[in-house]
Amino acid sequence: MLSDILQNRYAVTAVILFGVGFTNLMLQQNLLRKVIGFNIMDSAIFLLLASLGYIDGGVAPIVGDRGFDPLYINPIPSGLVLTGIVVSVSITAFSLALIQRIYRRYGTIEMRELLERAKKEDD
């Protein structure tokens, strides 16, 4: 059991991070903390993907004139994560902009007050 965990340490860390982020996303009342939880989930997924491509004793995939001799790590997950990181920034920026608008409209970013105020305005 313990040796399994130590063997798959990156994947286990990624799952724990994902759980922490998801719990925050669901349970926090503050919208800004929800966004932070979302970002932690992002990091977890990137960590899992990048650790899948790693090979023990491998070097970074810059071929140069070294040929195919040394062992290279898998370049595909790195490329995917590279695009993912930049997209996650734009997602964060968009949600923060939405939060600013919500604050300007309702004057709060606490979930509970927000729902009550929105309901009051509906009536």
């Binding site: 798959n8 090979i55 997950p77």
Partner: peptide
């Protein structure tokens, strides 16, 4: 995760 292929092995299905 416990039943995933080991970390950093060369003959993992992803390689």
């Amino acid at each position: 995760v416990m039943s995933m292929p080991g970390f950093g092995e060369e003959d993992n299905p992803i390689n």
